[in-house]
Design a protein around this nucleic acid. Structure first.
Length: 649
RNA sequence: GGGCGGGUAGCUCAGCACGGAUAGAGCAUCACCCUCCUAAGGUGGGGGUCGUGGGUUCGAAUCCCACCCCGCCCGCCA
């Protein structure tokens, strides 16, 4: 007998029995919930109900006698997984699993379903677009942004395993002034070929160009302020100038040739800022020269992104260019439609979207979880010069997504919560409330550095690549120390999946809403509650199975009587529940926590009880089956968060 | 000023959606465990006003209200 969700089967039996007992004992009572939950301790059984505490209130009696009456009214037959039901504590009803049968069910199920075990399919499969990463093509992905692809990829994986048709999208934000800045610098340099990783190369051009353009602008502003007798502005400008001058000194030291070249070339232009603005307008207008230039730099940078993503095994199904939405009529169509709604007005030459009016007219405050007295700020849709803004374009992009999917999940930092809310409200305003209801902003908090704020404009960041390099290097030292007998090649391979796994795990493990202060120690952890710990546990299980070198054909699961063994069976049997919860509530961190907890239990078991050298062949086989199940479940859990489950390390 | 998120052991975090039995891990620290299946491991000790104050409840880290601290947002930036 097998089950795709062994623990749920046990729970169903408990529910049926409890509901029956309740109905026969207290037919007059209406209970909306049976209040079943996992007790804190195996001594209290595998499931417990606190129903009697609520009954006590309704019936004005003490809980424990009620619990006893329920227990005596339990059906005497029909159980296959429940061994006994007991009234305990102040009034709990505790259900105990019949472990010989339950272990058999759980371990056989894992064995049979193998690498599909745990991935219970949804009854309502839909098409989902997960947009994640979407780092601007201006510089390498830095560690502050790396949380995004790690979470986004894990989300895409769990939704896919849940049975949804998932498409992973990268939104390339190439429209906007910054893209013109980097393209301008690139052009001034004579469109050079990169002599290093392409995104790094582009990032250097971006930072130095930014700095030089900023200095130029500030100097002109200073002159203007002096002559126009705006003397109160002078100290403020001087302060900014001093800051950028020191950044310039930093950059000149780091990239002397690049800096000198750009300094000369940009110096040739009277007003670089104006050149950049012109390029920006030309790009939005779709002029061929601007198009080819900006696309060329962007592509270059994206080439670097692809290399990084390959390293961490993150892939995308679609790369969507923001500029495509501007050049086609999709943005203007959205604007046309919004203009005919009563939610748009013009003020000072700009087009504004009255999100508050939408929320009031359509009575959305409760639905959106907003306070009654909170006013949603308006959103500017179109600038005075007729160009559109980021969120406006994002509305067109979102409609495009809903042409291709039933549900949209945007993995975007929480600093964009308001913009994402306004976007959602715009969908309601356009009459697409079904879209709006299926539009989810998966928000996560920032990763910061302890000393200073990361700033790509100032060239102050630690790149994701650097973190990965360091992780792999430290893992290599670790492998060399622990397994000196391995060949260089083996060590390198292990160091790679250990280092990268450690980073992936560390970025997925913490609750996304928590802010993270980046430290090397935090990400490059090789001890308990890290990917290497879980990986090691997996390798350890593999090693036992390898050494045993036989199929556990004579297993007697009734012999698994130790508390440690039963806890392991329970954990393995509960994986489908954890998977479903992680998927339905979009909580990939639950998977990491589960994997770690399972590894913990297995290591305790490993240290306490012999598997191969157990007292009898039947017990040994039962423990081997248990070890095999743990191996499979750890493999499946790690797979969901994109971490390699190695057979050796 | 308004909104959102966070505040749990010296440090990093879990638990909070759905209130239940002694609030859990890891790091650090102290003491142990490799003639034994991988010690990236295990065992044990010490360490807590769950930000503060009220409230609801038989029962609150969890729900409600007020306040405090930290971060982010409130742009014709993205």
């Amino acid at each position: 007998m097998t089950s795709e969700n062994p623990f749920a089967k046990f729970r169903e039996e408990c529910e049926t029995a409890l509901a029956y007992a309740l109905k026969t004992t207290f037919p007059e009572v209406e209970a909306d919930t049976l209040s079943l939950s996992k007790p804190p301790n195996v001594d209290f059984g595998q499931l417990a109900s606190s129903l009697c505490f609520e009954l006590a209130k309704k019936l004005k009696q003490k809980p424990i006698p009620l619990a006893e009456r329920l227990v005596s009214a339990m059906p005497k037959s029909g159980f296959s997984l429940v061994s006994k039901v007991v009234a305990a504590g102040a009034g709990y009803v505790n259900f105990y699993a019949d472990f010989p049968k339950f272990s058999d069910l759980a371990l056989s199920s894992v064995r049979q379903l193998n690498f599909e075990y745990g991935f219970v399919k949804t009854g309502d499969p839909v098409k989902v677009i997960v947009e994640h990463t979407s780092v601007n093509p201006l510089h390498p992905i830095h560690i502050g942004q790396a949380r995004n692809p790690m979470l986004g990829d894990a989300l895409a994986r769990i939704l896919e395993y849940r049975g949804h048709a998932v498409s992973r999208h990268y939104y390339i934000d190439d429209v906007g002034r910054q893209s013109s800045v980097v393209a301008y610098g690139y052009l001034k340099l004579g469109k050079p070929k990169p002599d290093e990783k392409a995104d790094r190369f582009v990032g250097e051009i971006y930072t130095v160009t930014c700095c030089l353009v900023e200095l130029n602008r500030l100097k002109r502003e200073l002159e203007l302020a002096k002559t126009a007798s705006l003397s109160e502005e002078v100290p403020k400008i001087n302060k900014e100038l001093a800051e950028w001058t020191s950044i310039a000194a930093e950059l000149e030291e780091k990239f002397p040739t690049l800096f000198a070249k750009l300094l000369t070339k940009i110096g040739e232009d009277e007003n670089p800022e104006e050149e950049i603005n012109r390029l920006n307008r030309a790009y939005e207008d779709g002029e061929p020269e601007a198009k080819s230039l900006i696309r060329e730099v962007s592509e270059l940078c994206i080439q670097g992104f692809r290399e990084t993503q390959q390293r961490v095994e993150v892939r995308y199904d679609s790369w969507d260019w923001e500029s495509d939405f501007v050049w086609s009529d999709q943005v203007s169509k959205v604007l046309q439609k919004l203009k005919t709604s009563p939610f748009v007005y013009t003020e000072g030459g700009v087009l504004e979207f009255d999100a508050e009016k939408v929320v009031c007219d359509l009575d959305l405050k409760g639905k959106l979880g907003l306070r009654e007295n909170y006013e949603v700020p308006p959103l500017t849709l179109v600038r005075a010069d007729g160009t559109t803004l980021y969120t406006t374009r994002d509305v067109a992009y979102t409609l495009w997504k809903f042409d291709r999917a039933d549900r949209v999940v945007n993995v975007i930092g929480m600093e964009q919560s308001l913009a994402q809310l306004q976007l959602k409200i715009a969908l309601y305003a356009l009459g697409n409330s079904d879209y709006a209801d299926n539009f989810f902003h998966f928000a996560y908090n920032l990763i910061t550095l302890p000393g200073y704020k990361m700033s790509s404009r100032r060239g102050r960041y630690i790149t994701f690549d650097e973190v990965l390099d360091e992780a792999v290097e430290r893992a290599f030292e670790e492998v060399s120390k622990r397994s000196p007998q391995l060949s260089q090649e083996e060590k390198r391979e292990i160091a790679n999946f250990v280092g990268i796994g450690a980073v992936r795990y560390a970025l997925v493990d913490v609750d996304p809403s928590k802010p993270v202060i980046f430290t090397w120690d935090r990400v490059l952890d090789f001890e308990t509650n890290s990917a290497p710990y879980v990986q090691y546990t997996h390798a350890r299980a593999c090693s036992i199975l390898r050494k045993a070198d036989r199929k556990p054909e004579n297993a007697d699961f009734g012999l698994l009587k130790e508390k440690l063994e039963r806890e392991l069976v329970l954990a393995v049997a509960s994986f489908p529940d954890t998977f479903i919860e992680a998927t339905e509530y979009l909580k990939p961190n639950l998977i990491a926590d589960f994997a770690n907890a399972l590894a913990d239990r297995f290591n305790t078991f490993y240290n306490a009880l012999p598997v191969i050298k157990a007292e009898s062949q039947e017990l040994s086989d039962a423990r081997l089956a248990l070890t095999d199940a743990v191996r499979i479940v750890i493999h499946n859990a790690l797979n969901l968060i994109g971490v390699v489950a190695p057979e050796k390390m």
